[in-house]
Amino acid sequence: TTEYTFTDDEEARRAIEELKKRGLTFRYEKHGTTWRVRVD
């Protein structure tokens, strides 16, 4: 499991789109302004 942290909404959304394109399994949660994206 790899975890990424983003504080920029645009950056987080781009990363999420990219992961979807690659067909990877991931989860994300947003805490205030911080996004945590975990890739299995």
Rank of each mutant, 00 (worst) to 15 (best):
T1P: 12
T1I: 14
T1N: 07
T1H: 12
T1Q: 09
T2W: 14
T2V: 13
T2F: 13
T2P: 04
E3K: 03
E3I: 14
E3D: 06
Y4L: 09
T5W: 14
F6Y: 11
F6C: 12
T7E: 11
T7L: 09
T7V: 06
T7A: 07
D8T: 12
D8N: 13
D8F: 04
D8E: 05
D8V: 05
D9A: 12
D9T: 05
D9E: 13
D9R: 09
E10W: 08
E10S: 09
E10P: 03
E11T: 13
E11P: 03
E11V: 08
E11C: 12
A12F: 15
A12N: 01
R13Y: 12
R13T: 08
R14Q: 11
R14A: 12
A15P: 01
A15W: 15
I16S: 01
I16L: 06
E17G: 07
E18M: 10
L19Y: 06
L19E: 00
K20A: 08
K20G: 06
K21L: 08
K21A: 11
K21H: 07
K21D: 05
K21M: 08
R22S: 12
R22I: 07
R22G: 05
G23E: 03
G23R: 04
G23W: 02
G23D: 03
G23N: 05
L24Y: 10
L24T: 04
L24W: 05
T25H: 14
T25R: 12
T25K: 12
F26D: 01
F26Q: 01
R27P: 01
R27L: 09
E29M: 09
E29V: 11
E29N: 05
E29H: 06
K30R: 09
K30T: 04
K30F: 05
K30Q: 06
K30S: 03
H31D: 14
G32A: 03
G32N: 04
T33G: 14
T33A: 10
T34C: 15
W35E: 02
W35V: 09
W35P: 01
R36P: 02
R36L: 14
V37I: 14
V37K: 00
R38Q: 14
R38Y: 15
R38A: 11
R38E: 14
V39Q: 01
V39T: 03
D40C: 15
D40I: 15
D40R: 08
